[in-house]
Amino acid sequence: MMAGPRTFDLKRYPGFGFIAAVCLGLLYLPLFVLVFFSFNERRSVSNWSEFSLDWYAKALANDAIRQAATNSFLVATVATISATILATAAALATTRVPRFRGLTGCYAVINSPLMVPEIVTAVALLSFLSLIGLELGVGNVMIAHTVFCLPFAYLPIRARLHGMDTALEQAAADLYADPVQTFRHVTLPMLMPGIVAGAALAFVISLDDFIITQMVASAGATTLPVYIYSQVRMGVTPEVNAVSSMLLGVSIVIVSLAVLLRKKETT
């Protein structure tokens, strides 16, 4: 028999590679355009003149942006820490005990912020906070963020605990470690990659949130996404591109770290 010009590749489907390229192009081209024009010297986001970092300098010197950035990082840090602690406790409660009735219900409650559409959560929180008259400024935003960051922190921690052999904790108990020592010397160090991954995701989710913050934040509690949104509504300038690019950069760095960390764990 004559061999074809190319051997028959069982796995190959013609055109699938092209579609994959389209997919990645669709995902990344807009972002490239955004970043590209943030370096434009002229005040235009469609006609390129020459390379410049002016818009970054302007953005960094802008008090409103600095205030919003400070708020964003403050909120993200507090929300991440509290969500991660609560999520770790919840993950221990739902994995390190024999199955009990209502466990599925527990999962549903913890993950409920994932299931409810953001816009619904946003208006619900707005109504609720104005009803009880809670006016903590940035504090309101922090509470809201902690709630919806919780499931994002919870899921990787629970996954890690699920994959962890209980024999290790029993071995520690067998070697005279009391429950606190067992937790400190065995459970916690083993759990750390899950906690770090969960915290990273919670941080990014908090940093990225727009809708809920928009509804809940009072005047002084503006975060970066809320600021960007207000600027976009007013008109597009390379300064907005610059701020957006920086926010994008932070998210990408954190996500990359989380992914790298998980990869290091599995190998």
Partner: peptide, 11 residues
């Protein structure tokens, strides 16, 4: 009492 576990359970 100490135990040698089936799959060793080394930390």
């Amino acid at each position: 009492i100490n135990t040698v576990f089936q799959h060793y359970a080394l930390f």
